[in-house]
Every structure is written in structure tokens, then in C-alpha cells.
């Protein structure tokens, strides 16, 4: 914003470029490089991965909020995320780091339900 005020017509490119991503590319590169079989990453691939990560964060947060029970309390909680990881196919790869907290009695109940559903078929 400040930039466009100081030179309104000159730096159009750079200011719109700044708006496209907010996560630090260098950090994303570090994470990518921590994968042992990756040798090199070109600049476009790095940019796209950074941008995709931002989209992913938005998508995960919004999907979890919409699926979750927090709408009345206006809160996004851990369990909303864990539920989304478990219930949504595309977020399944997150179940390891988003384990569901569940009472044993609820687990047994859901186990029973699953068995009932199975016998329906």
C-alpha cells in the first residue's frame, strides 16, 4: 500500500507481486529440501508450492469451520480440524498429525454403528 502511494504508476508489477504470496519462500524451500530425494527446485515450482500452501491453509480452515460445531460459539477448534481430516478424502493424509481425541465410550458406540451399517448391506 505504502509503495503504491509513493509511486502510483511505476511499481505496479512489484506491488501486485507482493500481494500474491505472504508465506516466506525461503522457509518453504527449506521444508522442500528436507525431503531427501529432492535435488533442485526451480523458482516457479517454489513459488507455486508456496502459493498452494496458502490456499491449503485457507481451504483447511474454512472446510473445518463449516463442517465443525463452532458456528454457534464462533470458534474453530482442534476437534473441527481432526474431524475434517478424518471425514474428508483430500485431507486424509493429515490424520497422522491430527489424531482425533475421542472417548472410549464414543468409540465403542461408533463401532457398533459401523457394524449395524455393515449388516444392512
Amino acid at each position: 500500500m505504502k509503495m503504491s502511494q509513493s509511486n502510483p504508476d511505476k511499481d505496479d508489477h512489484t506491488s501486485s507481486n507482493k500481494k500474491t504470496i505472504s508465506l516466506p519462500i525461503s522457509r518453504v524451500r527449506l521444508i522442500m529440501k528436507s525431503s531427501p530425494d529432492v535435488s533442485s527446485i526451480n523458482q516457479d515450482a517454489l513459488f507455486l508450492t508456496t502459493k498452494a500452501t496458502e490456499l491449503f491453509v485457507q481451504h483447511l480452515a474454512l472446510a473445518s469451520f463449516n463442517n465443525g460445531s463452532g458456528k454457534e460459539t464462533n470458534t474453530l477448534s482442534y476437534s473441527d480440524l481432526a474431524n475434517t481430516a478424518e471425514e474428508t478424502e483430500t485431507f486424509h493424509f493429515l490424520t497422522d498429525i491430527l489424531p482425533k481425541k475421542i472417548f472410549a465410550r464414543d468409540y465403542l458406540k461408533s463401532l457398533e454403528q459401523m457394524q449395524e451399517e455393515d449388516t444392512d448391506f
Binding site: 529432492v38 508450492t49 500452501t53 491430527l98
Partner: peptide
């Protein structure tokens, strides 16, 4: 989750 996403995508 975002870090895991980066690794998975990579």
C-alpha cells in the same frame, strides 16, 4: 498440517 502439505506436494 501446512508443513506436511509441503512435504506431501514435494
Amino acid at each position: 498440517a501446512a508443513s506436511v502439505f509441503v512435504l506431501y506436494a514435494t
